[in-house]
Nucleic acid binder design. Structure first.
Length: 345
DNA sequence: AACGCGGGGAT
DNA sequence: ATCCCAGCGTT
């Protein structure tokens, strides 16, 4: 009983995770979302008409798992500093990581610089036009490829981020939230909503709608222009039975990795004009289980020794710190020269 | 399919 | 204390 015949498929369509949608509903939803978007959209700078494809790409990478409100100031700095792929390609990676600041998932900054190098060196500085080509670049998956192709190049793609998935699932499947990750079936199903013309307005609009109205928590159903036809609303807005597993933070490797990165960023920040600073001795990290030699600490800028103390506060286990430093090095987020550790090249 | 990866603001 | 945010790459 592994296959399901076409008749079984038809008879169980009502229970399908992606139910059939009437044409009239598709058109109504399109019109409503696009009209809503034209008056309610946030004035995000990367939506300006003169924004380059590169700038759009940067905004999308920065926005992966990071709220737009935190992205905007970083994006402005980056565009001022590195307005083209060639600019970022030539930048010291240490400076790239430092400028990433606290957006989270700093590996994204590494992938973004790698992508910039491919674009600058192999693609004559031109951001790829199609989603298929974009997806070959490091750090660009199905969402980002579709988004850049649609927003920067006007290709008719199906943009399927967490917002779009939630909006469509609620409207037509009556469920609270989508599955853990979208499959091809969901993308195919979602593609029917993307109009032939104004597809970028649909793509941006339905994303924005999910961010401002059909939100994950406390959705604004009272003012929602689609509540009349919303399957989730009709079903009494049931909460999903299984909650997504929530990731811990306090005490985790992630937190400790972040603290170690903070030390390296701090050392880098105070390294202007000096070769001695900009790096921290490996011993200072692994000695975290004991009292660090005060004379050694005095060699560091006070800001850096404060960050080091925070690492020590998080973990007194030199084995663990040593392991995480090894991970950071193999991830390309840190570099070792001799006994010294620093941000990479 | 499940996991690891950052960090912060809202509730 | 928990949730969630314009996901991606690896296993």
């Amino acid at each position: 009983m592994t296959h399901r015949t076409s008749s079984e498929s038809r008879s169980s369509r009502r229970d399908s995770p992606f139910p059939a949608v009437a044409n009239a509903d598709i058109h109504h939803v399109r019109e409503t979302i696009i009209t809503w978007f034209e008056t309610a959209a946030r004035p995000l700078p990367w939506r300006d008409a003169d924004t380059s494809a590169w700038a759009v790409l940067v905004s999308e990478i920065m926005s992966q798992q990071t709220p737009v409100s935190r992205v905007e100031p970083r994006w402005r700095e980056w565009m001022h500093k590195w307005p083209t792929p060639a600019d970022l390609a030539q930048a010291p990676t240490a400076e790239v990581l430092h400028s990433w600041d606290r957006l989270g998932y700093p590996r994204r900054a590494l992938r973004l610089q790698e992508a910039a190098r491919v674009i600058a060196e192999e693609l004559d500085g031109h951001v790829p036009q199609t989603a298929q080509e974009l997806e070959r670049l490091p750090g660009i998956g199905s969402y980002t490829a579709a988004a850049v192709a649609s927003f920067a190049h006007g290709e008719r793609t199906t943009v399927l981020d967490t917002n779009v998935r939630r909006v469509l699932i609620r409207l037509f499947a009556g469920r609270d939230r989508p599955s853990a990750s979208p499959g091809r079936a969901e993308t195919d199903w979602a593609s029917q909503f993307v109009p032939e013309t104004n597809h970028e307005k649909w793509n941006a609009g339905v994303m924005e709608f999910g961010a401002l109205v059909c939100t994950a928590r406390n959705p604004r159903c009272e003012t929602c222009p689609l509540s009349d036809m919303c399957a989730w609303q009709k079903a009494g807005r049931p909460a999903s039975e299984v909650k997504p597993k929530t990731q811990k933070w306090a005490g985790t490797d992630r937190q400790l990795r972040g603290a170690i990165m903070d030390v390296l960023k701090s050392a880098h920040e105070h390294s202007a004009g000096s070769d001695n600073f900009g790096s921290v001795s490996f011993d200072l990290f692994t000695a975290s289980i004991t009292e660090v030699d005060p004379e050694l600490l005095d060699l560091l800028p006070s800001h850096t020794s404060t960050k080091l103390a925070q690492v020590r506060e998080l973990s007194a286990d030199p084995e663990r710190i040593s392991r995480l430093i090894g991970d950071l090095i193999s991830d390309g987020l840190a570099a070792q020269d001799g006994e010294m550790l620093r941000l990479p090249g």
